[in-house]
């Protein structure tokens, strides 16, 4: 359980990493985006990844998931070195990805979006069934037959999270899950993220709302220009307003 780890001890041993980057360098064409980033997240851990726009947060996630290639460094997932492997092999170690922009299949129905990629966890457990996901997101239950592109932004976000849970993940990666949503919907998304975290699923959260992130995470990492400039517990971050001001602009 995440709550078992004291928040004041960011280096607490959470066991072998679910997902780990070791000294990775990533390029988009000629531009050097990540400069030797180390990052790890262990079972049940809740980690916030922070930084201003364009600092490399999404690129770090996409590099670790094998969506964009790393030029140097290693990617480990589920205890194996999966550097250079296709993303489907990396996420099959128990990772679910909710991308920025949600990545809903607009030409598939809500039901199809949910069941298409459903699978048991690596250990075979199937805690998250269609029924449980629909009980968690009653709005989706009312729209099962509708095409994905007919949903509102908030509903699409719920669908993206529901779809991720259908893969019975050990780690949920949320990239800008509340972006562009109305305040009430944001609140609902945060409620669900807490709920997911409390079931023991590790979560990696990228979000512009620093206060909302640090309120939920055990540990936070700040990226500036593709380099990790801070790593520490939420309390540690809250105690250093100048740090937040300098690196996050809040």
């Amino acid at each position: 359980m995440p709550s078992a780890a004291p928040a004041s001890s960011p280096t607490a041993d959470f066991g072998p990493a679910l997902l780990e980057a070791v000294g990775i360098h990533t390029f988009y064409g000629a531009s050097h985006i990540l400069h030797g980033v180390d990052f790890r997240i262990g079972p049940g851990e809740t980690v916030g990844l922070m930084g201003r726009n364009g600092m490399g947060k999404s690129t770090l996630i996409r590099s670790m998931l094998g969506i964009v290639p790393v030029r140097e460094g290693r990617i480990l997932a589920g205890g194996q070195d999966l550097t250079g492997r296709p993303s489907y092999q990396i996420v099959r170690t128990g990772i679910a990805y909710v991308p920025e922009g949600r990545g809903i299949f607009g030409n598939l129905s809500v039901r199809e979006n949910l069941v298409m990629s459903a699978r048991p966890a690596p250990n075979g457990s199937t805690d998250w069934t269609l029924d449980r996901v629909l009980a968690t997101f009653p709005r989706l239950a009312e729209r099962l037959g509708q095409a994905g592109d007919q949903l509102s932004g908030g509903e699409q976000q719920m669908l993206a999270i529901g779809r991720a849970l259908m893969t019975n993940p050990l780690l949920l990666v949320l990239d800008e899950a509340t972006e562009g949503l109305a305040p009430l919907i944001r609140k609902e998304i945060w409620r669900i993220v807490r709920l997911v975290r409390d079931t023991g699923i590790a979560t990696l959260i990228v979000d512009k709302n620093v206060a909302a992130v640090s309120a939920i995470t055990d540990r936070n990492v700040i990226l500036v220009k593709g380099t990790v400039v801070f790593e520490g517990a939420s309390a540690e971050l809250d105690a250093q307003p100048d740090l937040k001001h300098r690196y996050l602009g809040v």
């Binding site: 998931l65 993303s87 489907y88 996420v91 991308p99 299949f105 990629s117 699978r119």
Partner: peptide, 15 residues
């Protein structure tokens, strides 16, 4: 059908 819509996302879902 999903692959025709967004092939990167299909892969990222473990397929």
């Amino acid at each position: 059908r999903a692959g025709a819509y967004n092939r990167e996302m299909v892969q990222a879902l473990g397929i």
